[in-house]
Amino acid sequence: MRFISKYRRHRFAGPLLLLGALLFAGLTYSAAQAVTEQATLSQSDKATLIAEGKEIFARGCSSCHGLNAEGAGVGPSLIGVGAASVDFQVATGRMPVADMSQQIARKEPVYNDQEVAALAAYVASLAPGPAAVTNEELAWERDGNMAQGGELFRNNCAMCHNLAGQGGALTQGKYAPTVMGVEVKHIYEAMITGPQAMPVFSETILTPQEKLSVIKWIKHAETEPQLGGAALGRVGPVTEGLVGWVLGLGLLIGVAVWLTAKAR
């Protein structure tokens, strides 16, 4: 729980300080991140990281998001989206985007962890926003409650991501992707940043502990072995009906043909 209270304090420090001191907020943020992520990272390392990130950004991102991440034409402004957003979008391969279709899909990431961290640090240095998290600091196994997580998932997530977390259709060809096989930190970051069509689930509406419960449930659903045989895609009655017709009735008709054929 210690991590969570710290994390929370940090998250709400941001908006409050926004009016007063942008610089101070940035420092608070860096400090918090330094403690939570890489305790050994010194201030000068931080500055190099930001510089490195700025360079990658200029090369790979600025054509859409503008030279100073202020947004340009196709790409939105990234000022204030925070490191969490960058980590989610870039580390899951969604950014940089290959084709500007309705849906920005998950793919092999273009940048490695170091580069993602640099980019995140750079974007975070522009204005405070949700901080990136690491898999290790999310103690979902300890603090999450699976049954509660299922309940929350059905209430907040299943309408888009399907009851079994397999994903589902949105309007005009967009879709909510499957939540199976997604890294824990990316699930968390998606909830706090609301990537693409997904809404934001803020830390008071869905508390950090509740988010860990949701993750625990998702991770269970992901690893649960089949209890009743082949899952048939876990998408419900449509595939079941297909299997009933093709395999069930198909087999039986096959037998019926044999049964009524004349023996020689």
């Binding site: 299922g150 299943a158 309408m159 998408v235 419900g236 079941e240």
Partner: peptide, 22 residues
């Protein structure tokens, strides 16, 4: 072949819904 895995769907609650309900 698994059919109607109700344990995944959870208990009924009129305020909840799943995508792809058929």
């Amino acid at each position: 072949a698994s059919i109607n895995p109700i344990w995944i769907y959870g208990p009924y609650n009129p305020g909840q819904i799943g995508a792809g309900s058929q």
